[in-house]
Amino acid sequence: MKMKIEMIPEAELVYIQRRGSYGLGNIQTMEKLKAWAMVKGLLNDESIILGVPWDNPTVTKPEDCRYDAGLIVSDVQQISDDDVHIGRISPGEYAVFVIDHTAESLERAWSNLFLDLSKQGYQLDGSRPIMERYAARMVKNHRCEICAPIR
């Protein structure tokens, strides 16, 4: 996988969280967020959506795995909805992997991520989550990114 190192700044986001096995439910949560954001007029060509799987499914029971579908926003003051929460992205250095925006490519990337980091001499920073980043400009070209926090 192609990798670059990037400093990701702190940012505010709105998100919807679900619990359960990773997979189809994550996609449904992402679609729910996008529909909500479209109604609120928050989606445009500059939008960045994040998928954040908080738990390792090899050590966390599938029904307890948490997944956030989030949208980076500039003004959270206008947000009020029971299903939508407000959060922040922790700033820091990330290894960013650019991949095709397909289920197969995402699955392959997640399988190879830790080995690829190790081969490049980087160590994962467990204090920040790994994020799938879907920038509108990249998704239009059928690409997305996995951002792994490093130290």
Rank of each mutant, 00 (worst) to 15 (best):
M1K: 10
M3A: 01
K4D: 00
I5F: 07
I8N: 08
E10H: 07
E10L: 02
A11G: 00
V14F: 10
Y15N: 04
Y15W: 09
I16Q: 05
I16R: 08
I16P: 02
R18F: 13
R18W: 12
R19E: 15
R19Y: 12
G20P: 06
G20S: 03
Y22S: 03
L24W: 08
G25V: 01
N26S: 08
I27V: 13
I27H: 05
T29L: 04
T29E: 05
M30A: 01
K32F: 06
K32T: 06
W36Q: 04
A37D: 07
M38L: 15
M38C: 13
V39K: 10
K40Q: 14
K40F: 10
G41F: 14
L42M: 06
L43Y: 02
N44G: 05
N44E: 07
N44Y: 12
E46R: 11
E46S: 09
I49M: 08
L50I: 02
G51N: 04
P53I: 09
D55I: 00
P57I: 11
T58L: 14
T60A: 07
T60Q: 07
K61Q: 12
K61E: 10
E63K: 15
R66E: 07
R66D: 01
G70I: 01
I72D: 03
V73N: 06
V76S: 13
Q77W: 09
Q78S: 15
S80Q: 14
S80T: 12
D81P: 04
D81S: 05
D81W: 03
V84D: 00
G87R: 13
G87P: 13
I89C: 04
P91W: 08
E93V: 15
Y94R: 11
A95W: 10
A95Y: 09
A95M: 10
F97R: 00
H101Y: 14
A103E: 10
S105W: 09
E107H: 10
S111C: 11
N112Y: 10
F114P: 02
F114T: 11
D116E: 15
D116I: 13
S118K: 15
S118T: 04
K119L: 14
Q120C: 06
Q120R: 13
Y122I: 03
Y122K: 00
Q123P: 00
L124A: 03
L124I: 06
G126N: 09
S127M: 00
R128Y: 08
R128K: 15
R133G: 02
Y134H: 08
A136C: 03
R137E: 08
M138K: 15
V139C: 01
K140H: 14
K140D: 09
H142F: 14
R143Y: 10
I146M: 06
C147T: 03
P149G: 02
